[in-house]
Design a protein around this nucleic acid. Structure first.
Length: 569
RNA sequence: UGGGGAGUGGUCUAAUGGUAGGACAACAGAUUCUGAUUCUGUCAGGUGAGGGUUCAAAUCCUUCCUCCCCAACCA
């Protein structure tokens, strides 16, 4: 686990905390708070899950309680151990420790026993209708359902049939177990919902022990109740499942199956972020259709992608804290996420110099072979120490730091202009070398030796400071710049006949294969984070090889010059 | 023609009958060997609309409008 999450800063309580505090006043749970994070292991977690993780574990921490990690593995055809492993890694990386690791499949026997109990008290029955017939009998929003012809089988027959379902006497799909509630209900979830289906599938944990598997609505609440969860937090779309959640638990008429008080389901609005999509299904399509290179492609909104991109657990936790928790649908500006990571990395990332698009500078009044070793600060905060960087006659600077015909208020390099090389000296541009196409290929500059390591003795000031790398010492590396994956704020909000993939940003990845990096960066380890001076925050990618470093840009620095320029000011 | 939710500056979120506050974004200035950071200031909502109750309404009542979710043997 990375840095563990701690009790958050004081702030106004959200509505879930209000509920918990009210429960504490009435001593409903004797002060106990136990939440759970219940992922289905059928895909990778994304930043929306991160919000839910921070919420659930955060409540446990805040109220001196705990949180269980429970895999909702009731559908063996979709679930895999690979996902279990990645989910655990993600939760740990975010800085949270679960009290216990459970699986819905741990409760298959109890779930089965409770189902028999429901049959015995006349609240569940085996239905022989086909899948299609069940749908027809269910009606729709405007048409009430009609009772299944099998609805009034007696308990003994139901029990016999259910046991034979379990024993494998019927083919897949032949029969289901249904709760007997109300086929007329306006809430479709209450029209005799399915509890069990027959499915001969290999389960990632129970193997071939079971031929029948419970469905979510039945398994989830029961699992919560078995564990003694106090507050069961989920997203808004489960709001009209709540009556069903409560109904199942209320069937423990003799209070033999669950401890009291029963858990309470509370729903909050899921996270949406501008310029991205947030569903496992669409994320999977992005991977399958090759729009990105994998689940952890740094452009993705998965936790593994954000990690690879260079986000820190603390920044994600702070982000989750700031977006808040409420019940209204919202679309959070990705700028808030970017703020959270800049805020963290500004304080923690060592500074380095890297030139992404190199332009050669020759210091004409410096001898060949002349080398000045400079002591550069690793960070504005002196506790980060210093490092040695070489200054020589031939340098690389950022191509965009030179303008042949300078714009208004331009205070970087231009013909005749003087600028500071960060941590080194002042140089003045004396000559501009161009190729036959008129492209600037080299700058001839003169340095002021008296300014070495500081200011010019005559006190003259320069406005511009550039980052630079000694050509003789630079290592070459690959730098991957990422932009938003979609060009639309809400990719789902497409015009009639359009598709969310229409708004994919064709320029979301820009690979700079010949960046010039200061020598020390050759030893950067995967996962190490830096600020490249004046450019942004970067994280060493796992593709890094000895002598061939690869960096991902986590986020650019704020750039008021680029902004002003873009606005034509 | 059903059921369940939600509407507060551009975005997210607070206020629990008593001055509509915070964060992000934006804008301006100061500082700065990162056009970063930091600091200061500004901007901007009368709370979806109408009606009502009240000394007082985002909060209570009422009518209406808009948006989201639900008709998988998915979760």
């Amino acid at each position: 686990m990375s840095e563990p999450a701690t009790t958050p800063e004081p702030r106004a309580l959200n509505f879930i905390e209000d509920i918990i505090e009210a429960d504490r006043v009435t001593e409903k749970h004797q002060g106990r708070v136990l939440t759970r994070f219940p992922p289905e292991p059928n895909g990778y977690l994304h930043i929306g899950h991160a919000k839910s993780i921070c919420l659930n574990f955060g409540l446990g921490i805040r109220y001196g309680g705990a949180t269980n990690l429970r895999f909702d593995d009731t559908n063996p055809t979709k679930e895999e151990q690979e996902y279990v492993d990645s989910i655990k890694a993600d939760v740990e990386w975010l800085g949270f420790a679960w009290k216990a690791e459970f699986y819905a499949s741990d409760y298959f026997q109890t779930l089965y026993d409770f189902a028999e109990h429901l049959i015995q008290i006349g609240k569940a029955y085996v239905c022989d209708l086909s899948e299609e017939q069940i749908r027809e009998y269910r009606g729709n929003f405007f048409k009430p359902g009609q009772d299944s012809p099998y609805r009034n089988r007696d308990a003994a027959e139901n029990l016999d049939l259910f046991r034979r379902m379990r024993a494998g006497e019927f083919p897949d799909g032949a029969r289901v177990l249904r709760a007997k509630i109300d086929m007329q209900s306006g809430n479709m979830n209450l029209r005799d919902p399915l509890m069990y289906r027959i499915r001969r599938a290999h389960h990632h944990r129970t193997g071939d022990a079971w031929l029948i598997y419970p469905l979510y609505d039945y398994a989830h609440g029961v699992s919560d109740a078995i564990e003694g969860i106090t507050h069961s937090i989920c997203t808004l779309e489960f709001e009209d499942h709540r009556p069903l959640y409560d109904w199942f638990l209320a069937q423990d008429t003799e209070e033999k199956f669950f401890q009291r008080p029963l858990p309470r389901q509370i729903e909050f609005a899921r996270l949406n972020l501008t310029y991205t999509v947030m569903s496992k299904r669409r994320l999977l399509l992005l991977v399958q259709e090759g729009h990105v290179q994998g689940w952890d492609d740094p452009r993705m909104s998965t936790i593994s992608a954000l990690r690879r991109r260079g986000f820190t657990p603390a920044s994600l936790r702070n982000f989750a804290e700031r977006v808040g928790v409420a019940k209204r649908d919202s679309l959070t500006d990705v700028a808030l996420l970017e703020h959270a990571i800049r805020e963290d990395l500004e304080k923690t990332a060592p500074r380095r110099m890297a030139v992404l698009r190199p332009l050669k500078v020759v210091i004409t009044n410096m001898a060949e072979g002349e080398t000045h070793w400079l002591e550069l600060a690793n960070h504005p905060d002196p506790v980060f120490g210093t490092r040695k960087v070489a200054l020589t006659r031939e340098l690389w600077i950022e191509a965009e730091d030179f303008m042949d015909v300078p714009a208004k208020k331009w205070f970087r390099l231009a013909p005749g202009a003087e600028v500071r090389l960060k941590g080194a000296c002042l140089i003045r541009c004396e000559d501009v070398i161009k190729d036959t196409n008129g492209q600037v290929i080299e700058l001839r500059c003169a340095w002021d030796p008296a300014s070495l390591g500081g200011d010019a003795p005559d006190g003259r000031k320069v406005k511009g400071t550039l980052h630079w790398v000694s050509a003789a010492h630079a290592v070459e590396g690959e730098v991957r710049l990422y932009d938003r994956l979609f060009t639309a704020e809400d990719p789902m909000d497409v015009a009639e006949g359009g598709d969310w993939r229409d708004t994919l940003n064709p320029h979301s990845l820009d690979v700079l294969a010949e960046a010039k990096l200061e020598a020390g960066l050759a030893e950067a380890q995967p996962g190490e984070r830096f600020q490249f001076e004046r450019l942004g925050y970067f994280c060493t990618d796992q593709d890094t090889k000895p002598g061939a470093p690869v960096f991902n840009r986590t986020v650019a620095l704020k750039d008021s010059w680029a902004r002003a320029e873009g606005l034509g000011k």
